[in-house]
Amino acid sequence: MGPLQRGGVTKMNTRVFSYINAWITKLQSRWQTIVIAIPFYWLLLFFLAPFAIVLKISLAESIIAIPPFTPLINFAEGGVLTIRILFDNFIFLMEDDFYVKTYLNSIKISGISTLLCLLLGYPMAYGIVRASPATKNILLMMVILPFWTSFLLRVYAWMGLLADRGTINNLLIWLGMIDEPIRMLYSEFAVYIGIVYSYVPFMILPLYANMEKLDTALHEAAADLGANPITTFLTVTLPLTIPGIIAGSLLVFIPAAGEFVIPDLLGGGNVLMIGRVLYNEFNSNHDWPVASAVAIVLLLVLVLPMMVYQYYQSRKTED
């Protein structure tokens, strides 16, 4: 009697237990979906919705009204639905070489800035990775610290440093190294300084994360097999940090290409960058459709190469 009953109870227990278990597993897998779904739909909504609106405006015509553009879809009297799509704004951008030049200049400036950030950030990231744990934390802190003050304030500070009667010129004159102030503010040079200064942390952090994962035994193995430090760097360190280089470069290049504050404040009217043009079209000319077209083209210019790269990358890993 005893054993039989005990067996029965045990069986019940296991059944209930396995039921609960299955239920938890189900909840877990659903939970995972939910956790992924929330940011996914969030991004979808708050990236795609504004994009759709901007795209819509870029296909309209500027008018003096509120809002200052023609509607895309119109219900004419009598309930006839008309859709008006105009590519005029895009054609206008292509035809006026001012815009083409500005795009090219933006890409040039952000490209060179990215390269400078890489040249500056790579050794810094490497140094941080190799530092002792205590120093490492301090150095990382110093990379992140600037974010605690407003970006705008830091750019203004650079204006104070670079101006004709600014700190640097005053110091050089006081030291007797120059007689006349060197013109630094309101030039491409100042824009490069501003961009590199502001964006170098975005290069350092992904590189740091990448290098931190590298096994130092790999360097030792290379040395052991006869590679001097330079060869070790070129054949082992560099190839293995390419993911970090790409991530850092994208994080610098993309926002730098659309940068508005830095060219405006440090470049003045002398440096053409697409962010400023966009701002002017929108706020000074009140030409929302052209401003939108400028934004759409910028997006295409930045995103297309990335997508092509992604495509080839995924094909390569499949092989």
Partner: peptide
């Protein structure tokens, strides 16, 4: 090496 340290790339 104890960890082999093969070059992963």
């Amino acid at each position: 090496f104890q960890s082999y340290a093969l070059f992963p790339h």
